[in-house]
């Protein structure tokens, strides 16, 4: 029986990929990429989950043996920041695109070809 976390995160990745491939509006494609990144982050986190353990913070009553895997959390923290940076970059490009082309439809944004 596949865990609901894996199923959910992979569905999110696929939904994001679908949006990137099918949508024609630049902003919707960027939303798709964000959804995909969220799915990847959830997948990473659920790989580190150990059933029944608590957050990996050493404090009273919680020793090292009662914590979930802390490494994926560090990875996801990094990946979230990278995702936000990419999205910010992409949105500023979308602003320039709208200024120069007057549209956000990818089928009309075709000056470079060949």
């Amino acid at each position: 029986m596949i865990s609901v976390y894996y199923f959910g995160s992979i569905s999110l990745i696929l939904i994001g990929l679908y949006a990137v491939l099918v949508k024609r509006n630049v902003l919707k494609m960027l939303i798709g990429i964000s959804i995909m990144e969220t799915g990847v982050n959830l997948l990473l986190i659920s790989i580190g989950y150990v059933s029944g353990k608590s957050a990996p913070i050493l404090s009273e009553g919680i020793g090292p043996s009662q914590a979930v895997d802390p490494i994926p959390q560090a990875l996801v923290l990094t990946a979230i920041v990278i995702g936000v940076a990419t999205t910010a970059m992409a949105l500023s490009v979308a602003v320039i695109l709208y200024e120069k082309y007057g549209t956000l439809n990818v089928e009309e944004i075709r000056r470079l070809r060949g």
């Binding site: 990137v20 990144e37 799915g39 990419t86 992409a90």
Partner: peptide, 16 residues
Amino acid sequence: AEASLKYIVLGGIGSS
């Protein structure tokens, strides 16, 4: 901007 957008979309998928 157009070239960069193509790069960002492909790069976003690739890095995921």
